Amino acid sequence: GEIIWSYKFDDTPYISETLDSLIFIGAGKVCYGFDLVKQDVVWAFETKNLITVPPKIYHKTVYVGCWDGNLYALDFKTGRLKWKYQTGWSIDSIPEIKDGLVYFGSLDNCFYALDEKTGELKWCFKCKAAIHSSPTVYGEYVFFGCDDGRVYALNKTNGRLVWNFIPKYSIKEDANNYITTPILSTPVIHNGIIYISIEGYVYALDAQTIEVSEGKKIVKPSPFKYILVSLICMVTLAVLLLLHFIAKVKIGHKKD
């Protein structure tokens, strides 16, 4: 635990992963590129409001959300702005990047998917409240919590609702009405199970989904159901062949 060195920022620093001896830090209204070898700032990108989440580094691009409503994409070596996308309100979550899309939520109640290279909007999904939870992508779906008290699973390609989970509601002692419990944590997924903390509980949710299509719920069967159907078909065919053979034998006996 001996101190090797330290560096003082004027505001609370939020630290990202490292890349090529650089670490990326959001502090106050500025996103910094910090050289761990030189132990000094090598670039600084100023925003119009506070940064309260760590930047995300992916494919040599630094993505950082800000309370000015923008998601910024910066060159990791120079801090040069590649693109920015303006949402309707502040961003207080860490984006997730997968298969060419950048996923993140905003306090404007919307969850967004942008093109990784251009920042072009691909789709957005409207929730019932602000989103502080950072998303997680697993398989064909993206998962996140919302201040409306739901855990959402969306199709990562088109943003269509797959399912949502609503835990129990909490109630304040001095209130007569039930209030929604905001879900702020980031989902963690392992072996097809989603783990998320909500109001002192850790929930384990099955990632196997019920997809909503044109107002109808379509159960997506597991591979075991296909195997079972195949076995039933094979047994049925075998029984029919056996009955056909028995019928032929009986006809042969009658002729004799």
Rank of each mutant, 00 (worst) to 15 (best):
S90V: 11
S93F: 03
V41C: 13
Y85V: 02
V62D: 00
V41S: 08
F76V: 01
I25M: 06
L71M: 14
T78K: 06
S90D: 05
Y85I: 02
A27E: 08
V30A: 05
H59Q: 14
L74D: 00
W67V: 07
D40Y: 03
K60C: 13
A44C: 08
D40S: 12
V30S: 10
V42I: 14
L19D: 14
N49K: 07
I15C: 10
A44W: 13
V62E: 00
P54L: 06
H59G: 07
D10T: 09
G100I: 13
K29V: 01
L81M: 13
I91D: 00
P13F: 09
K48N: 13
V42R: 13
L19P: 03
K56C: 12
G33R: 04
L36C: 04
V37F: 05
T47P: 10
L36S: 03
G100V: 14
D92A: 12
I57Q: 00
S93L: 04
P55K: 04
G69D: 02
T78V: 06
V30W: 02
H59R: 15
D75F: 07
P13L: 08
P13W: 09
W89A: 14
Q86M: 10
Y72G: 01
K60A: 14
G79R: 01
L71T: 00
S16K: 05
W83S: 00
F34S: 06
G33Y: 07
I57N: 00
P54F: 08
K48Q: 09
Q86A: 11
T12W: 08
T78R: 06
I15D: 02
D92E: 14
Y85R: 08
Y32F: 15
Y72Q: 02
W43Y: 11
T52C: 13
K77E: 14
E46D: 12
K84Y: 06
G69T: 09
D40W: 03
C31G: 06
G88W: 06
F45S: 01
E96D: 07
T18P: 02
V53D: 02
L22G: 05
E17H: 09
G100R: 14
K98G: 03
V42K: 13
T61Q: 00
H59T: 07
S21G: 05
V53I: 15
P95I: 08
W67D: 15
S93G: 11
I94A: 12
S93K: 03
V64R: 11
A27L: 07
G79L: 03
Q86R: 14
I57H: 02
I15E: 03
Y58A: 10
A73V: 11
V62H: 00
C31K: 06
D40H: 09
P95W: 12
H59V: 04
P13V: 10
D68Y: 10
I97V: 15
R80D: 15
I97N: 09
L74K: 01
I25Y: 11
S93C: 15
P55S: 12
S16H: 04
F24M: 00
K60Y: 12
V53H: 08
S21M: 10
W43S: 05
Y72S: 01
V64I: 12
G28V: 01
L19M: 15
I97D: 04
P13D: 13
T47N: 06
K48D: 11
T78Y: 05
G65N: 12
K60I: 03
Y85H: 14
